[in-house]
Amino acid sequence: MKNRLRVLRAEHGWSQQALADKLGVSRQSVNAIETGKYDPSLPLAFRISECFGLPIEDIFLREEPSS
């Protein structure tokens, strides 16, 4: 699943570690989510959403199935 985490984090001027601290996860987790290697669970997605003050669908983008 694509996401705008890296862009949003940059807009806030946060490092991966800073965002990880806010979310209560490891920096590796933030990196894995940003690079699309890992899709977060719903509870973590909600925490990310609250962190940026945005709805989940503005952060995580549904990939359209290719026809």
């Binding site: 209560g24 996860v25 490891s26 987790s29």
Partner: peptide
């Protein structure tokens, strides 16, 4: 383990 990615 609290970190779900590391647990995975």
């Amino acid at each position: 383990m609290e970190d779900e990615y590391l647990r995975m």
